[in-house]
Every structure is written in structure tokens, then in C-alpha cells.
């Protein structure tokens, strides 16, 4: 139907719009729940990490983002940059101001600061409605962990964990470990913090390790 419409507008228009159309079709398929979970292009990652995640973070996978909350917030804001909803579980002291400055839409962010005993239930319920959840992990029984992983994969919800999960949790796609690599802007008695440098080591499930540098301002 669309091709037919564009015949009137000229061939060039149809050529220009081809990638958009493909993306829209993929989105419609995703909305309808069709297609295998693996073939969906995931959430964008910041440019310096692109080489480690050429297709972005996979929908439905779990990533451990350790060492720095800044990195976790960068990934969350990037994943929601297209207007997606997000949720933050079990992080009562999260700096909302910095999250908002990184581009996270607070109006579309659900905060569950104290899920307590119901951590797994809360994450599973949020997986139904938001495409990405940032959470501080708790200790889960192996059966509970695998049930949650299955639910996340089925719903296409990406889970970012701020700490390495317990060994019982088997389904982590990749671990991103950030270590501080300096600050810019603060001197001896003058200036203020303007930029932070992070060294990020990505360890994929396959065992492949890569190193990256990320500047956050």
C-alpha cells in the first residue's frame, strides 16, 4: 500500500524513505509480538561502546554494569532517548538531577526505591510495561532467577544491574566494568567538576574482552 502511495510522489522519495519504512515495519512487527527475539535491533549505546555492541544492547537480555552508576545512567538515558519508558528499582539515593541532565525523561521513569522482599515480582511486573529496567540486584533462588530471565526475554525487556549478580544468576549477556580514569575541571582550590573520564572493560558472555574510553560531561 505504501509503495503505491509513493509512486505519485516520485521514485526518489520512495528511495529516501526505504530505511524508515524498514524500521517502521520492524517496529510494527515488534509491537505485534511477531518475529524471534534475537532479530530485533536493540537499544543504542554511546559512540565509544559501539564497537563492543554493534547492534546495541539486546532487548530481553541482562547486562551487569558495575563500578560506576554514571555508566549505568548513560546507558539507561541512551536506551530511552527515543521516548521509551524506563524504571529504576532499589536505588533510593539515585541522583535524579544528573539522570535528567543526561537526557532521561523523568516523567517517563518509574521509581521503586524499596521493593524489599518483592524484588523479583516488581521487576517482572515492570518488564511488562517498560523496555528497560535499571536495578540493584538481590540474591535470588536459581529457579526464581531463571523464571525472571525467561520473562525478560519473552517481553523484550532489557535489565541493567548495578552490581554483579550472585553466581546463581546465569543469564548475564555481558558485564561492563567501569573504572575511574580522571576528572576534568577541578583544580587545587578552584574550578568545578565538568567532565568525568571512565575506562570501561566489556566482558561478553563468549569471553571476549574489549577496553573502551568514555567521557561523560
Amino acid at each position: 500500500m505504501f509503495e503505491h502511495l509513493f509512486e505519485h510522489g516520485g521514485v526518489t522519495a520512495a528511495l529516501d524513505l526505504a530505511p524508515d519504512l524498514a524500521a517502521l515495519r520492524a517496529r510494527i512487527q515488534r509491537l505485534e509480538g511477531a518475529g524471534a527475539p534475537g532479530d530485533v535491533t536493540g537499544f543504542g549505546v554511546p559512540e565509544p561502546l559501539r564497537s563492543a555492541f554493534p547492534t546495541g544492547l539486546r532487548a530481553g537480555a541482562t547486562y551487569a554494569v558495575t563500578g560506576s552508576l554514571t555508566l549505568a545512567l548513560v546507558l539507561l538515558a541512551e536506551a530511552c532517548s527515543q521516548g521509551a519508558w524506563s524504571a529504576v528499582v532499589g536505588l533510593p539515593g539515585l541522583g535524579l538531577e544528573v539522570a535528567a541532565r543526561m537526557g532521561l525523561d523523568l516523567e517517563r521513569t518509574l521509581l521503586v526505591p524499596a521493593p524489599g522482599e518483592q524484588w523479583a515480582t516488581v521487576v517482572a511486573a515492570l518488564a511488562e510495561i517498560v523496555p528497560v529496567v535499571l536495578a540493584r540486584p538481590v540474591r535470588l533462588a536459581p529457579t526464581e532467577a531463571s523464571r525472571l530471565t525467561a520473562r525478560l526475554r519473552e517481553r523484550g525487556c532489557t535489565l541493567l544491574l548495578t552490581e554483579p549478580p550472585a553466581a546463581t544468576w546465569s543469564g548475564v549477556q555481558a558485564t561492563l566494568h567501569a573504572s575511574p580514569a580522571g576528572w576534568r575541571g577541578l583544580g587545587a582550590g578552584h574550578g568545578c567538576l565538568l567532565e568525568r573520564r571512565l575506562a570501561v572493560e566489556v566482558q561478553q558472555r563468549t569471553g571476549r574482552r574489549t577496553r573502551h574510553h568514555l567521557d561523560v560531561s
Binding site: 535524579l96 523523568l106 516523567e107 521513569t109 518509574l110 524489599g116 518483592q118 510495561i129
Partner: peptide
Amino acid sequence: GPADRVHHTATRLQGRLGHDGVLTATI
């Protein structure tokens, strides 16, 4: 719409965790 589903689930979670169990923020 997505907003409706978000709302239903958030309300259900509030039923479990209490009124201030699920929050939104503004700066």
C-alpha cells in the same frame, strides 16, 4: 496505549507496596 498499560501496572504495584512504593520525580 503504552501509557495505559504503564498506569495499570504501576497502580497494581502500588497496591502491593503502598501508595509511595512507586514514585515519579521532577526537578
